[in-house]
Structure formats: structure tokens, C-alpha cells
């Protein structure tokens, strides 16, 4: 018996280690790959010199430091944040297909960011990152409160998702309406953003979004223990000493902050929040938050870097919206998951 115990634990540990190493390797490979690709070909030696010595051809230097690097970091950080936000919402609703996009949280953020930009640009010429994030956060919370309101009267999980999708459509419709009738060329540019993209982010934005997402990640990681208890169900969590009411509020705030922050910079991005946590749990063969949270964060980054690579290069110089690519790779995962769950039940 004792031997069996250690064997089981040993295999599990080896699996966890393999998953994390695999993710780190993928992360490194995709970083190099992304820096090395684009409409302008830059030799690898030049890239290395530009990054490590900060010297080289001025045009190449600008492409690397002002365009490619911020974009890589953005996709990694925001992708991680999105996956984490999805994991938190799945925990909260006890539903594997909950996520910021399907529940309409991203669209709520999008609407508020668009609103703030249109209104603010009438009076000032520049909208700060903080204002954008605040607007996105407020939008996420408002959309979330609608979802929660629906959740109170709708006990069926599938109907809750339908409610979320409806909220998402309403928010998107209003956003498109605003953008269509806004004359300002700056606002017309909003159209690209509202479809979702990692492009065009500046270093200041990278710093702010990284700060918010990384701090949130640490907070969420430190919540591993109560999240694990909450996964068993509310009543059990309470009997284990979790202040369930307070915990639920924190969970909502953290997931909305993460979803809002991502949307403020990259617009709504579909399926990352559902597909990545699911893939990670499949790989790890466990749902333990202390492992899933860091793996999700890393996995979300890897997934978005990969999708952004496709978005940039597949039909270069035309860029695809990031949501197009994440949906292409994420939706089949979600469908596979639904089929698997259904057949497991039957």
C-alpha cells in the first residue's frame, strides 16, 4: 500500500513537472519566433545585438523595441490574465464553459471603454491608460452584475450562458452603434480595437497592464487554498472555515479586474478564458488551484502568443483580428470538452 502511494504521487509529480517545463519551453520558443517574424526580415544576429546590447540599425531597433517587444509582452501578459479570469469565473459559477467572453463581461468592458473614449475625446485630446482600465473594470463589473442578477433567478447553467451571450450582444450592438455614428477619425480607429488586437500598445501601456495583471496573479495564487475549498461546493467550503460571502466578492472583483484590464488594451478576445484552463486541467490531470493557477497563467500567455503569431503572419501584410484566431483554435477545444463531458455523463 505504501509503495503504491509513493508510486502514484511520483507519477503525478513527474507529470506536473513535465507540463511546466513544456510550457516554459513553448514560451521561450514562441518569444524567439515572434521577435523573428514580421513584414520586415531582420537577421537573428541583429536581433540578438539589438536586444542584448541595444545597438544596431535604427529602423531595425525601432521595429524590435517599439513594435515587436511590446506586442509580445502584451500578448503573453494579457493572455495569461484572460486565462486566469476564465478560471476564476469557472470556479465561481461551477461551470466549465463560463468565461469573460461568453458571459458578456468583455463586451461590457468594451462598451464602457468606447463610451469613455468618445465622451472624453470631446473634451480632452488624450485618454490615459488608467482611465481606460477604470472604464473597462467598471464595464466588466456592470456586465457581471447583470449576469449575477440573471444567475439568481436562473438556476440552470446553460441558460445562464445564454443570458451572458445576450448581454454580450447588447453591449456589442451599442458599441458598434456608437462607433458607426462617431465622426472623429480617432474613434473610427476604435473599430480595429473593438474586434480585438494586441497591436499598437505602447511601453507605458505594457508597464501598467503588466503591473495590474501580475499583481492580480499573485493575489489569485495566494487564494489557491480557499479556491480549492470552494471548488467542492459552497457548503463544504464554509465548513472548512472559508468566509464564503467575502470570498465570492473577491473572486468577482479579481476576475472582472483581469477581464477589464485585458479588454482595455486588446479588446474582447474570445475562447482563451475557456479553452486554456480546460487544456491545462487535461494536461495536469488535476484541478488543484495551486498548480492550475500558475499553469493557466503561463498557458494563456503561450496560447495568445501563438495565436498572435498566426494573426500577424498568416495573411501578412493583412492582419487578422486576434479573436478570429483564438476562436479558430479555442472553439474546437470547447466543443471537444462538451462532447467529452456529455458522454461521461451518459
Amino acid at each position: 500500500m505504501n509503495k503504491l502511494e509513493t508510486n502514484g504521487a511520483g507519477t503525478r509529480r513527474a507529470r506536473y513537472l513535465a507540463v511546466f517545463i513544456g510550457l516554459l519551453v513553448a514560451f521561450a520558443v514562441l518569444t524567439v519566433w515572434n521577435i523573428n517574424s514580421g513584414s520586415v526580415r531582420i537577421p537573428v544576429t541583429n536581433i540578438a545585438r539589438i536586444i542584448f546590447t541595444r545597438q544596431g540599425d535604427q529602423t531595425e531597433y525601432d521595429i524590435i523595441w517599439a513594435l515587436r517587444m511590446p506586442r509580445i509582452i502584451t500578448s503573453a501578459i494579457l493572455g495569461g490574465g484572460l486565462a486566469l479570469s476564465g478560471f476564476l469565473m469557472q470556479t465561481f459559477f461551477g461551470n466549465p464553459i463560463a468565461g469573460p467572453f461568453v458571459l458578456g463581461i468583455s463586451s461590457g468592458s468594451k462598451l464602457f471603454v468606447a463610451l469613455v473614449m468618445i465622451v472624453a475625446l470631446r473634451f480632452v485630446s488624450y485618454v490615459s491608460s488608467w482611465m481606460m482600465i477604470l472604464a473597462a473594470f467598471v464595464g466588466a463589473l456592470i456586465a457581471m452584475s447583470f449576469v449575477l442578477l440573471a444567475a439568481r433567478s436562473i438556476k440552470q447553467m446553460s441558460m445562464l450562458l445564454v443570458a451572458g451571450i445576450m448581454i454580450s450582444y447588447i453591449c456589442s450592438a451599442i458599441t458598434e452603434f456608437l462607433i458607426t455614428f462617431a465622426q472623429d477619425t480617432d474613434i473610427v480607429n476604435l473599430h480595429n480595437w473593438s474586434m480585438g488586437s494586441f497591436s499598437g500598445i505602447k511601453w507605458s501601456g505594457v508597464r501598467i497592464s503588466s503591473f495590474i495583471v501580475l499583481v492580480s496573479f499573485v493575489v489569485v495564487f495566494l487564494m489557491s487554498k480557499p479556491i480549492g475549498a470552494y471548488q467542492m461546493g459552497e457548503s463544504y467550503a464554509q465548513s472548512m472555515g472559508v468566509n464564503v460571502k467575502r470570498f465570492r466578492v473577491v473572486l468577482i472583483l479579481m476576475s472582472s479586474l483581469l477581464a477589464g484590464c485585458v479588454t482595455a488594451y486588446a479588446g474582447p478576445i474570445s475562447f482563451v478564458g475557456i479553452a486554456v484552463p480546460h487544456l491545462i486541467k487535461m494536461l495536469l490531470k488535476t484541478a488543484k488551484p495551486i498548480l492550475v493557477i500558475p499553469a493557466c497563467f503561463l498557458g494563456g500567455g503561450v496560447f495568445c502568443m501563438f495565436c498572435d503569431y498566426i494573426a500577424r503572419t498568416a495573411f501578412a501584410p493583412t492582419e487578422l483580428s486576434i479573436s478570429t484566431v483564438t476562436a479558430l483554435f479555442g472553439a474546437p477545444v470547447v466543443i471537444a470538452m462538451l462532447i467529452k463531458r456529455h458522454s461521461a455523463k451518459a
Binding site: 495566494l222 489557491s224 471548488q231 467542492m232 472548512m240 472555515g241
Partner: peptide, 28 residues
Amino acid sequence: LTERIKGELLTCYDVVATGRYPYTNTLG
């Protein structure tokens, strides 16, 4: 409780181990 334990990919060992929750450190 009569309420079903939710949670996914849990081994029986994992479920029993949640009983130690009140005694473990911050990360559980």
C-alpha cells in the same frame, strides 16, 4: 452533507485531504 461534492478530477485521496484544510498553511 447531502449536497454532492462538486469539483473535477479529484481522487478520493484529494477529497479526504480537504478535511485537513483547517490545519494547513496559507497555500494549503
